[in-house]
Amino acid sequence: MRILSTERPVASRLKSWLVHPRLLLAVKTGVAVGIAWLIAPLMPGVADDYPYYAPLGALISMSPTLMSSVKHGVQTLAALAIGILLAGIVIFLAEPNVITISLVIGVGVLIAGSRWLTTGGDYVAVAALFVLIVGGQNADAYSIGYLVQMSVGITVGLAVNMIVLPPLNFSAAVLQLASFRTQLSTHMREIAAALVETWPPEHEQWAGRSGALAETADEVRAAVRHADESRRLNPRARLHQRDLNRDYEDLTALETMTFHVRDLTGVLSASIWEGPFPAELPEGLREPLSTTLCAVADVLIARNDGKDLTPSVTAADDALVTLLARLDDQSDLSPSSLSPAASVAMDLRRILAIMRQADAQSSEQS
C-alpha cells in the first residue's frame, strides 16, 4: 500500500507536466524550427544564401496563443520591412558611417515605440542595423534574403500553430478567480480570529498582507486576459464556449472587494498596533466585528462552491445588523472611538452589496 501511495503523486505530477501548455509550446516550436530549416534551402534566388533566418522566423512566431502568434508574426514582418526601408534610404542618400547608422537606429527605436508595433517593434532597428553592417556591399541581396527567409519561418510557425491548436486557458482563469476568493475569505477569517484573541493579538501576519492582495488581483486579471486571448482565432473556442464577460465581471467585483478589504485591514491594524493614524476599537465591538467578518467570508466560500448565496448573505446581513446595533449602543463614547468600527462596518456592507449584485447578474445571465 505504501508503494501505491508513493506512485500516485509521482504519476499525477508526471501527467500534469506532460499536459502542461509550456511543454506543448516547446514541442511545437522545435518542430516549426526544424521544418523551417528544411524548407529554407529550397527558396529560389538570393534567399538561398541566408537559410538561417527561416528558423529564427519560426521561433519568433511561436506564442502560447494563436492570436498572439499571428500578431507577433505580422508585426515582426512589418518591422523588418520598415527597418530595411530605413537602411535603404541611408544607402541611397549617403554612405553608412557612425553618424548615419546612429541616426537610423535612433529613428528605428522611435518607430518601435509606436502603438502599431506592440510586439515586434524592436526588429525595426535590428533589421536596419543588419542591412547596413552585415549586408554591406550586398545590401540589396541581403535585404531580400533576410525578409524572404524570415517570412518563410513565420509562415511555418503559424502553420504549425494552426495545425496543432494552442489550448484554451479557461480553466486557469476559473481556478485563479476561485483562489482569489479563498484568499480574501481566509484573510478576513484571520482578522476575525485576531479580534477575539487576547489583546493585543499574537497573530499579525494579516496586517502586512495588503500589498499581497493587490498583487494577487493583478495576477488574476492577467489570467483572465490570457484566457480571453487564447480563444481568439482559435477554432477550439467554438467547441468549448465560455462567457468570459462574466469572468471579467467577477474579477471587477473581486478587485472592488479587495479595495474594501485592504481598507478595513488598515483600519483594524491601526487600532491594534501603532499605525499611521490614530484609531481605537472599543472592546464591546470586537466580537460583533469578528462575527460579521466570518459571515462575509462565508459568502465568498459559498460563491466558490456554487451554492445559493441567499442563506449566507442573509446570515451576513443579520450579523451586520447586530454590529450596527452595538454601534448604536455605544453612543455614549466619543465619535473618534466609534469611527474605526463604523468604517469597517461600511466596508463590510459594501462588500455584501457587491456580492449580492454579482449574484443577481449571474442569475440573470444563467
Rank of each mutant, 00 (worst) to 15 (best):
R2G: 13
R2M: 07
R8H: 06
P9F: 09
R13F: 10
S16I: 05
W17A: 13
W17C: 03
L18W: 12
H20F: 09
H20C: 13
L23F: 12
L24K: 15
A26K: 08
V27F: 15
T29K: 03
G34D: 11
G34V: 15
W37Q: 11
I39T: 08
P41F: 12
P41K: 02
P44Y: 03
V46D: 07
A47D: 03
D49R: 13
Y53N: 02
Y53H: 08
L59P: 04
S61V: 07
H72P: 01
H72D: 10
V74I: 15
Q75W: 11
A78G: 15
I84Y: 13
I84S: 12
G88Q: 12
V90S: 11
F92G: 09
F92T: 14
A94I: 03
E95C: 01
N97M: 02
T100C: 05
I101K: 05
I101G: 07
V104I: 08
V107H: 03
V109Q: 02
I111N: 01
S114L: 12
L117D: 01
G121T: 04
Y123V: 09
Y123R: 05
V124I: 15
A128Y: 08
F130I: 06
I133P: 07
I133H: 03
I133M: 11
G135M: 03
Q137E: 02
I144A: 00
Y146G: 06
V152G: 00
G153I: 10
I154R: 01
L158E: 04
A159V: 14
I163P: 06
V164T: 15
P166A: 08
L168P: 10
N169Q: 12
F170N: 10
A172T: 13
V174S: 08
Q176L: 12
L177D: 01
R181T: 00
Q183H: 04
H187P: 06
R189M: 08
R189Y: 07
I191R: 06
A192P: 06
A192I: 07
A192L: 08
A194R: 02
P201V: 11
H203Q: 10
H203W: 08
Q205V: 14
Q205A: 10
G208N: 10
G211A: 13
A212F: 00
A214Q: 03
E215T: 12
T216Y: 07
V220H: 03
R221T: 11
A223E: 02
A223N: 02
H226D: 14
H226N: 09
A227Y: 07
R236L: 15
L254G: 00
M257W: 00
R262Y: 02
T265N: 09
T265Y: 08
G266P: 12
V267L: 12
V267M: 10
E283Y: 06
E283K: 06
G284N: 05
R286N: 01
R286A: 04
S290H: 06
T291H: 09
T292R: 04
L293F: 11
C294Y: 15
C294S: 09
A295Y: 05
A297W: 02
A297P: 02
I301S: 08
R303G: 00
R303K: 03
A316P: 05
D318I: 13
D318K: 15
D318W: 11
V321I: 11
L324H: 02
R326E: 03
S337H: 04
S339L: 14
P340M: 11
P340I: 09
A341G: 03
A345M: 02
I351G: 00
I351A: 01
A353M: 08
Q357G: 02
S362H: 01
S363D: 04
E364I: 13
